[in-house]
Amino acid sequence: MGNAISFEEPWARTHQFDPPAIFDALRKEQPLARMVYPDGHIGWIASGYEVARKVLSDPRFSHSTEIGHFPVTHHGQVMPNHPRIPGMFIHMDPPDHTRYRRLLTGEFTARRADRLAARARAVAAEQIAVMRDHGSPADLVADFAKPLSLRVLSELVGLPYSEAARYGHAPTLLHDPDTDPQEAVAAMGEATAFFTEIIELRRKAPQDDLISRLAAQDDLSDEELRNIVTLLLFAGYETTESALAVGVFALLHHSDQLAALRADPARLDAAIEELLRYLTVNQYDTYRTALEDIELNGETVRKGESVTVSLPAANRDPAKFACPATLDIGRETSGHVAFGFGIHQCLGQNLARVELRAGFAALLSAFPGLGLAVDFDDVPLRLKGSVFAVKSLPVSW
């Protein structure tokens, strides 16, 4: 096992848009390679497209936190195994995962998401007005991407955006490894307390929102419902906000692709899929643990060994996507794994696409001269953490 890489190597991103260079070598020689986890466990990392999909779709791999080995540290500390958390179904296997996910599937269908499109466009227009009122330059993250994502998701879930100060900053603090741990814990406590209040209110006076519909389920406890709300917020807010902001950053840097999109706005959906593939902001925490010995890619993954799947690396596999390091809004992107794969594939991907479509369309229409207000290398990035992001994006028009 002397050739096992450290868990830190695959996360050592140094470029604004590209995953760490080690993945290029791994895909050629060891698309399933040995990796030393933070707790000393010697498991695996999958960087090839095909092997990644196999791991994510094989029911012999578990996503349980009770047996898995975390591929990252939290504020520098090793993350221990812990019992499953009621309602936090992202880290559950069937049949428990199936039970919770089935309650939510109807809320996030493509048809339901499309019905939210008009509202997403209205929110985007309102945030454009905020940017205009602020004047050029403005921070696209604070004035546009964050509020657009949080407002649309909050309305669907049933969280009053007027009180976003009580819950909106918790996901950012928890996703950012540079945050003061005590500050993050305090923010999480405040958010969950707020969710408890809202659940109690919705049980007494239901509204047309997800919390009210879930509260009507006889077999869901307050604890389960609170954790479901927490999961939806943490999984759906920062990811979409980051995909939008980093996507704009990428288009402003790749002026030829931005020009092609402006020349033919009908290519917007294709451009969004390519940006999702090219950037893949979900960069950490995708791992599975073998429930039995499994033959995979010519290797034997032993029972109890964890396999980390690098979604950014899989989406840059030249065996699947030609010239994958090139941003090309005209390419065929079907099959990309920016939203994961298998039974844990992102539940809210249809909603995310609606928000991204509304956000990009509004910006392209409102600001024909949109550009960076700082040098390219001066845009502050969050390179580590579960979600790749820009901390701010100063733009002018």
Rank of each mutant, 00 (worst) to 15 (best):
A4M: 06
P10L: 12
W11F: 14
A12P: 02
T14M: 01
F17L: 04
D18R: 09
P19T: 00
L26K: 11
K28G: 08
G43T: 01
G48N: 06
S57D: 11
S62P: 04
T65K: 14
G68Q: 00
H69C: 07
P71V: 06
V72Y: 01
Q77P: 03
H82R: 14
P83N: 12
R84S: 12
G87R: 05
D93S: 05
R99F: 03
L103W: 08
L103R: 09
G106R: 09
R119E: 10
R121I: 11
A129T: 13
M131V: 09
G135V: 04
P137A: 09
A145Q: 00
K146Y: 15
L159E: 05
L159C: 07
E163Y: 07
Y167A: 08
Y167G: 04
G168D: 02
T172E: 12
L173C: 00
L173N: 08
H175I: 04
P177I: 07
E183H: 01
V185G: 14
G189R: 13
E190R: 14
R203W: 04
R203S: 10
D208W: 08
D209T: 03
D219K: 02
D222S: 13
L231R: 11
A245S: 15
V246D: 06
F249Y: 00
L251M: 14
H253I: 02
H254M: 11
R262G: 13
D264T: 12
D264F: 05
R267P: 03
L275C: 01
L279A: 06
N282S: 11
Q283P: 09
T286L: 06
R288A: 14
N297K: 13
G298F: 10
T300K: 14
E305H: 05
S310C: 01
S310G: 00
S310H: 10
S310E: 08
D317Y: 02
D317R: 03
P318T: 09
A319M: 08
T326K: 15
E332M: 10
C346L: 08
L347Q: 04
G348I: 02
L351N: 06
A352T: 01
R353M: 13
A358W: 02
L363M: 07
D375I: 07
D375M: 04
L383K: 07
S392M: 02
W397K: 07
W397H: 06
